[in-house]
Structures are given as C-alpha cells and as structure tokens.
Simulated scan of single mutants.
Amino acid sequence: MFRVPRLAATATAAVALAVSVPGPTAAGEPAAPGPRVVARFDFALGRTPENIALEPDGSANLTWSFARQIVNVDKRGTARILATLPAVADPDTPVIGAAAAMGIARAHDGTLYVTYATGTSETGVWRVRNDGSAPVRIAQLPADGFPNGLALDEECGVLYVADSVLGTVWRVPQEGGTPTAWATGTALQPLPAPDGVVGANGLKVHNGAVWVSNTDRRTLLRIPVRADKSAGPVETRATGLAWIDDFAFTGHDDTVLAALIMDNVLALVRPDGTHETVLDQQDGLSNPTSVAVRGGKTVYVPSASYFTTVKDPNLLLARLDAK
C-alpha cells in the first residue's frame, strides 16, 4: 500500500510489510522497496489465479481456475503451463456453474495436487506429476460439493480439502483413495439461504491443527488434530474478516496473512484475532484469492479479478520484514 505500517505480530516481535520484489540480488532474494506486480494474466482466457504453491527456487505454481490449468510462474513473471485438467461436458458446479481448478499443494518430490470442481463425477483431487504426464484423479468428491482449499500433511500422508458448499473438511490419502468427512458442523458451513454462498474456503495445516477460513461467516478457524488423527472441536480464532478467501502463516507462530477477496485487501491477523490491512488495491490487488510466504520474508499474492470492473489478474510480490 502507499504506507508501510508497523504491525504487532507476536508478544516478542512485530512485523511490517515492507513489500518488495522486482529483481533478485546476488544472493537471489528480492531487493527493491515497495510491492510490485511481477506477472499479469489474461482474464478473457480464464487465466484467473486461484491458489498458489511455491517451488524451492522461488517460482510459483498457480491454478488458473477457469482455464483449468496449472502453471509455473518464474521470478521474471514468465508463465509456463504444466498441465490442463480435462474439459467437462455440461459442468454444473455449485456457486459458479463452470468447471474450475481451485486449491493446490506441493509434495517434496515436486508432485502437485489440485482440487477440481465441476458439478460432475470428475470433481475431486487430481495429481500432477513433474514428468509431464497427464493429470490423474486420485479421489472423487461429491459432485454437489465445491472442493476449494487444499493442504498436504506429507508426514501423515494425507490431504485435507475444504468443501465450500457442503461445509466439510475432507481427508484424502495422499496416494489416493476414498475420502473421509474429517470435520463438519455449522462453523464450516455457508450461511443459511438466501444469504449463504461460500463456507469453508482456504485451508492450511499448521502447528498440529487444520486451519480453515469461512467466507460467509468471516472467520478463521482452527481444528486440532488429535493423537488418533481425528478432528478436535472447531475453535474460532478470528472474526470480522470480511470476504476472507485463502491465507498463509508468516512463520512458526499463529500470525496469518489473509486475502480478503471482495475488499481487495491483504490483512495481517494476529494470534489474538486482531487484524489490519497491510496491502490494498492501490498496491495492485485485484480480488486477491490466496497468499504464500517464502522463508518468512517474501510474500506472494495472486489476484483473480473476478469481481472488479477493470480486469487485471496478476501475481504481486512483497517483502515481510521483522522489526
């Protein structure tokens, strides 16, 4: 944004978004001050970045939702298509009507996992290997649901999926197989009709719990993973997050950066639930959908431009500095 606030983030430190990122330094890290859009995409071609998973080299894997594609964007902003999910005849996806690639997660060997919402039997979790082979569906999810946020717990060999319509967190074996409804309940559901649209949305695994955003209810939730791997009681950790989409943790504590899609805002959410804006439309955000943080320093924010009048889907980079 046009100013750089100093934000309290933990009891022992503060965080400021001193955003950055044009060119790399000799050490390979961004150096220039201020947030910067490093890549722009074509809305008319469905290249609307929905979710993000980072590579070790700092490049970003994105789902282009309506193009049904998974792409890699390097540090120069050049996009390379990795895979295209199969077209679906007569998609009937809840909420949006069209088939869409949604969440993405990366395994250590480079394998990518993607949620695909279609309103048909093709709905589910798809695997994209890094050998150029065609995407493969590894788990089928209900056609009347809307699989959205996705996270991988590689230590336990499971994927978690947030279903925005059915108000469910699904648990799927990493190698594929039958999904389990791991967590359900009012806190994960959309609001009742006619106001309800999107419930459980973004999802992350962090500090022994599955964290989920609920867009309709404007909440950030924490669901403990018990010793037997079942879901503990849902805890509300923050409220008043209007139009929250996906989010990311800034480090080992519970400080979060959250994309507030309709407000064109990136919000910093402290462990006590208080929050404030750190980036906005003046910085280049255009309906931000998700966030990634690399090395506790570099922040990536994809914007899909779903609702703005001026269509400018993009990828913005910023710098997170400890103060």
Score class of each variant (00 low, 15 high):
Asp131Val: 09
Gly132Val: 11
Pro135Ala: 05
Val136Thr: 15
Ile138Phe: 12
Ala139Pro: 10
Gln140Tyr: 00
Leu141Cys: 13
Pro142Arg: 03
Ala143Glu: 14
Asp144Ala: 11
Asn148Cys: 11
Asn148Asp: 15
Gly149Pro: 10
Gly149Tyr: 07
Ala151His: 10
Ala151Pro: 12
Leu152Tyr: 09
Asp153Thr: 04
Glu155Trp: 10
Gly157Leu: 04
Val158Asn: 04
Leu159Cys: 10
Tyr160Lys: 09
Tyr160Cys: 09
Val161Gln: 06
Val161Glu: 08
Asp163Thr: 00
Asp163Met: 00
Ser164Ala: 15
Val165Trp: 01
Leu166Ala: 05
Leu166Thr: 07
Gly167Asn: 03
Thr168Gln: 12
Val169Gln: 04
Val172Ser: 00
Thr178Asp: 13
Ala181Phe: 03
Ala181Arg: 13
Trp182Met: 01
Trp182Pro: 00
Thr184Met: 04
Thr184Tyr: 02
Gly185Ile: 03
Thr186Lys: 13
Thr186Arg: 14
Gln189Cys: 11
Leu191Glu: 10
Pro194Lys: 06
Pro194Arg: 11
Asp195Met: 12
Gly199Met: 01
Gly199Phe: 00
Leu203Trp: 02
Lys204Trp: 01
His206Cys: 10
His206Pro: 05
Gly208Met: 03
Asn214Ala: 04
Asn214Gln: 05
Arg217Thr: 12
Thr219Phe: 03
Ile223Leu: 11
Val225Cys: 01
Ala227Ser: 14
Asp228His: 05
Lys229Asp: 14
Ser230Cys: 03
Ala231Phe: 00
Val234Tyr: 00
Val234Glu: 05
Thr236Ala: 01
Ala238Asn: 04
